[in-house]
Every structure is written in C-alpha cells, then in structure tokens.
Design a binder for these strands. Structure first.
Lengths: 245, 245
DNA sequence: CGCCTATTTGATCTGATTCAAACAATGTGG
DNA sequence: CCACATTGTTTGAATCAGATCAAATAGGCG
C-alpha cells in the first residue's frame, strides 16, 4: 500500500476536486490487481461484458472503434490516473474497445469494490460521475473538431488538449510533454489520413508553433497554437486551474 | 400531479430500467416548473452556470456548439422524457448550448431537488448516471460517424439511430416517426453541407430505403438501411429490447 | 397574395484522400 | 556488430468526395 500522494488515482482526483482524508484512505485501499501489458494490446474489446474497471498507472491507452471496412476511430487518449472504462460500471456491454498504445502498467478494480466504495462514501459517487461527464465533454469537443474544423485546426486542437491535460497532472516540463502517439494514431483520432497529418504537422512546425520529435512534443507558441486551433479550454472543466503556459 | 405512467420522465426511465413504486412516486413528486418555448430558441447557452436541469416534455431539442467562423455542430437530439443538460449537475459551466428545434414544453428541475432525490433514493443515482453514460456512448458513435463514414452512410446511420430511439419509447407507428428536423440541421449534426445532405437523402430514397416528407420519416427497408449505414445498435444500450422493426 | 424558410438542381472548385515510393529509425537475431 | 525486417515519417502526383456558389422551385402562413 502506497502513500496517498503517490497513488495515481488520488493524485488525479485531487487535480480536479478536494478529497477528505477518509476518502483518500478508502481510495488507496481499493483492492486492485496490477498487470503489465505490452504496446498495441487490447485490454477490453467491443462486445465484452467486463466485471472490473481498468485504471491506467503508467503509459498511454486509448479507446477506439473499428468500421466494417477496416478503418478505425480513436475516441480518446488516456494517461496515468484515468479509468477509461468507468462506464462499464453501469453499461453492461462495451460498445468500443480499450487498448494500449505504449507498454502500460494497469490496475484492475472489481465493479463490486467501486460500488462498495460509493456506498460508504456517497460523495465519491459524484466525483467519479463527474469524471465520466468530463469524458463526454471531451467527446463533444472532438465531434466539433472532426466535423467542423479543417485539418490544420483539428490537429492543433488535439495537441492543445493533450498538452493541457498533461499540465493539469503535472506532466509538463519545459513546455514539453512525452508524446509517443504516432502520426497514424493522430489520423485515427482526427479522422485524417496519415499523409495529411504529416503535412499539417509540418505546417505547424513551419509556423514555429511547436516541435515534435523523438516522442516529445514541445509547444513553442502557446497563444499561436490556440489561435490556429480555435481552442477554448472550457470543455476540459479544469476549474480554478491557471491556464497560462 | 399526474399518474406515474403519464409522466414522460418515468416512462422514459422505465424503458431502460425497472423502478420501484417508491422511486416512481419520488420522481413524480419532483418539484418542477413548466415553460413553453418557441422553435429555435436557446434554453441554456455555452458559458452559463445553470442551477437547474431541463426535462423535455414535448418537442425536439438539441445540443450544439458554434465555431468562431459561424459554423455549428449539433451534438445530440433530444425528445420527450430526456434531460439533455443533466451534466450540469456536476459540471459548473455549460461547454455547449441547448436549444429547441420545434416548439417545446420544458420542465425545469432544481439541481438541489435532484441531489435530494439521489440522497433519498441512492439507486436512482445509478439510473441517471447511466443516462449520461448512454449519452456519451452516442457521442462516441457520432465521432465515428463523422470521422470515418462517407456521407451516405453517415446520414443513414443517424436516421437509424433516431428511428430506434423513437421505437424504444413507443413513438413508432407504421414504420414511421415524426421528423421535424430540417436538412440544414441534419447537415449540422453530420458535418455535411445542406446541399450534400439533400443529395444523399435522394440517394437513400432512390434505393427505396425510406421516405421523408411532410415531417414524417418512414423506413421502407430497415435491413437495407442498416446495411448502408453499417449500423449496430449496441451503442444505444437498449438492453433486452427487441430490435426487430 | 407575398414573404420567408426549406428543398432541389446544376456547375465549379478544393481540401483531403489515395496510391506509390523513398527514407529514417528501431530493433532482432545470427 | 552488421544485415535485415519492421514500423514510422516524408515526398510527389493523381484523383475524388464533398464544399461552395448561384439560382430555381416549392411550401407554409400571416
């Protein structure tokens, strides 16, 4: 059992709400089993009926769906401290898949444990519910992104979001974040082809807005990037947090 | 106060879960004030911090967001019995707007009343949470739709969804549903131009899959339409319900 | 009737895809 | 430690799905 501060779940929740000591203790004592998974592995698949949720401890995961003709749409990216399949708590079947992008350390928590937690600490129900609502807010923004922005703005917008989400959990150093997402994956997330993702990235680099190499994304001109993206961070609901970069 | 069966909220929730008599009573006695609103009116706007939720009693509502350059993306359609802005219960600011498409009868319920309801009937928390999770599932499917399907499939898919959602609450008669959504609005929901929506509708009509006139959508060939759309109803999480049409 | 909103049609243009191939980086096993 | 396979990035050219522009038609309705 680790100290509350070190616990990725506690750290993440504290980045968006206040927790009482009892709540923290309850969270840290949630029974879970940890598993290491390689890159590009499915964790749960469309159609599965899971009986546990998956907490990302380390690495990048994503949710996605495939079409009949072999294309795929990535619906979200997930980093340490997030529970990508929390919805399985109330929706019996998975309507999409959850997979790793990089090697991951994952913790699995039985639905029953979570239900018990909520019974004993009703206030936490709202905290986790809120998490799923922010997920949904991000989905909405992505719909907007894919449906109504041109390729350059689309890409810029996604990068803005990932940057800010990393910032919220203290993963920004020197205006940079770890960025192991490939251009193909960026394409699957934005509804663009690899080729076009590549060209638009060059465009953004050319405008000196960012660099992206060796799996590191560095934002050179935050305001410029926001401008190109038409980015408004409201939808992330990171209340109170200072947005300056 | 009306009988539980007549109450749109109760009817809708019963279409997806079982309610105890006490729960039904509690729902029916939720304090709410009713307001009639004309077509194309905003109910809550991006940036607002509402203190009540809006239950649709009659008519069509939608959630949408606008871009800086005047385009808009519709993120969802809502019919009687739904609470489109339930998320405001846990997210202080609206990250999108909620508006009417047709004239609507709306009931407003104070956040406080809902919180009280959940305290007294904890099981209902899960029921409403689940509602927001299904919303999110629909957002995901729309991302897929907009990002990865061609115009014809996109439109067909949206129509399949609306048809099935109406069916779930008993609003299908003779393979037909009321359909007051304009082609412009369909375009805003699918990320297509009005012109192209029109052409794709003609395509679907030409294949004898459906008719759409006088604000009535009739599905002539459900299997064919599903096929064109690549439609799989799993994401609607209408469990147990017979999907045959 | 005349105004306003929605649908339809035709012609043109363009952002993004697709196809094809080179190139770079990373890792693997002999 | 190098040859080779694999995966990711980059470049160029051709093509196309869907947007845009422009205008006609068709419904409601005060």
């Amino acid at each position: 059992m680790q100290a509350p501060r070190e616990h990725p779940l506690v750290r993440r929740l504290e980045s968006i709400t206040d927790l009482s000591p009892e709540e923290k203790t309850a969270l840290v004592h949630l029974p879970m089993h940890v598993r290491e998974v390689g890159p590009d592995q499915d964790i749960v698949r469309e159609g599965d009926k899971p009986s546990e949720c998956c907490l990302v401890l380390q690495g990048y995961a994503c949710r996605y769906k495939g079409t009949a003709d072999g294309k795929r749409q990535i619906m979200s990216f997930h980093v340490a401290g997030e529970i990508p399949d929390l919805q399985s708590l109330h929706l019996r079947s998975m309507d999409h898949s959850l997979g790793t992008l990089t090697p991951c350390r994952l913790a699995f928590i039985a639905h029953q444990s979570l239900h018990g937690l909520f019974e004993r600490h009703p206030r936490l129900t709202g905290v986790f519910w809120r998490e799923t609502l922010i997920d949904a807010a991000i989905f909405r923004e992505w719909m907007m992104n894919i449906g109504r922005r041109d390729a350059e703005a689309r890409l810029a917008h996604l990068l803005c979001e990932l940057f800010l989400r990393h910032k919220a959990v203290g993963l920004v150093q020197d205006h940079s974040i770890e960025f192991p997402i490939t251009q193909g994956e960026l394409g699957d997330a934005t509804g663009l082809s690899v080729v076009h993702v590549n060209r638009m990235l060059q465009e953004l680099r050319g405008q000196k807005l960012l660099t992206l190499e060796d799996r590191v994304l560095t934002v050179l001109d935050w305001l410029g990037l926001k401008q190109v993206a038409g980015f408004d961070p409201l939808y992330l609901h990171q209340e109170g947090r200072d947005e300056g970069v």
